[in-house]
Amino acid sequence: METPVDTSQIVQFAALDDLLALSRANSLWPLTFGLACCAIEMMAAGGPRFDISRFGAEVFRPSPRQADVMIVAGTINKKMAPAVKTLYDQMLEPKWVIAMGNCAISGGPFVFPGQYAVVEGVDKLFPVDVYIPGCPPRPEALIEGILALEQKLTGKRRWPVVKPPQ
């Protein structure tokens, strides 16, 4: 007898979860955190040409406590790695990481046998949600990364898929 009530509650929770996921996906506040070349493209993505604010993601918070997503834009070297880890730990759940650029994905062009300084990919330090390759990626790619994160959160894509020209 009681089962219908239970299911309805579950359904409602699912709806609430969807709503929350949608809210979070549309309010990704990044941490002000540029490392190298890619940071300039990150700034450009906030610029008037591309305007990342359309997705509610222009609120760059300098304090990790208020940020939701860490865009690792640039090379992380071994001196910097503990600091990045601390920053990640200082962020509050739920939190996401976007590895922007080849350096953040795998160390990029700075990896060679016998290298002594570069961390070969930010996923060696903490889990990464979205990878954006390029050296540096275009701002569109960063927007695409935000959309990919949204897709990961909500399970669907609300925007048209852009095919690159041949």
């Binding site: 994905i105 979205v130 990878y131 927007i143 690159p164 020209p165």
Partner: peptide
Amino acid sequence: FSKNYNLASTSKEDY
């Protein structure tokens, strides 16, 4: 060179 300018994925093996 291709013109794949907007790559983004949740897995790095895609690249």
